[in-house]
Design a binder for these strands. Structure first.
Lengths: 130, 130
DNA sequence: TTTACATTTGCAACAATGTCGCAATTATAT
DNA sequence: ATATAATTGCGACATTGTTGCAAATGTAAA
């Protein structure tokens, strides 16, 4: 039910495709690209549709993009609005949210205005580290 | 002379193309993509060559990539090894280094190991802000 | 400075990703 | 149940990433 509610909250048409994709996000704890989603969809859908769904989700703020060097843009469900870290593992290549880690104490130079941020740490994640 | 010295220091073949590209980086204070470089090259060169040059520069550590949502990967000369911010302006679309701003005071969860980081702030830069 | 060898370049191709118009299909509000 | 608004699937094409290979160029050694 969660997915439908969410779509409704964001005033989006509730379609089978969107529900399925949102369900995948709700179950995943790593960032997903268009292809990642296609792979996890039991009922395949069109590339352009996934692309546009992701675009809509991004524009409404359901997810946010985490651009990662070396692969297609990944998206994660937007959690708290606070600034937090994303972690990309060089072994398993997953990108995840380190939502509990916050960044603080920096100030932009005169004249700069922040709209949003994207902090990415690249390294070995706890699961691959051993 | 700077460019040749640099290439030499990194033990790379000193070719006209590499010197020209490195010169462009040395003169630029914003991140550059393959296309950005092509545009600034007085003597055009092959896309694949620029691509591979960028790859070599990245591998040797002369530059580092700053992946930016919505455009091709941009590269900036690698400065100090310290962690610092990159700023992407939504108006002029330039990406630049805020080398004097450092990030500190965060700790990764147990088991995570950092290799490198990529901190990007998106907003309006000082030149577009008025 | 010429030769022999190592590397890089340009070209051609192709894969992956991003993007859009349009007609057919599906959701919503009435 | 219908009219209307929005989404989907398809086809196409643009951009970016990537590689093999032969020709051209850089380097080191003679």
């Amino acid at each position: 039910m969660k997915a439908k509610e969410l779509l409704d909250n964001y005033n989006l048409y509730i379609t089978e495709g969107r529900v399925n994709i949102l369900d995948i996000f709700l179950k995943s704890n790593v960032g997903l690209s268009e292809k990642d989603i296609q792979d996890r969809l039991s009922k395949k859908s069109d590339r352009a549709t996934i692309y546009r769904t992701l675009k809509v989700f991004k524009e409404t703020g359901i997810v946010h993009p985490v651009s990662a060097e070396g692969s297609a843009t990944k998206y994660v469900l937007k959690k708290e609005p606070q600034e937090h870290l994303h972690f990309k593992c060089t072994k398993c290549r997953n990108i995840s949210c380190l939502a509990d880690i916050q960044i603080s104490g920096y100030e932009l130079p005169q004249g700069y205005k922040k709209i949003e941020s994207n902090f990415l740490i690249i390294g070995i994640c706890n699961e691959c580290n051993n």
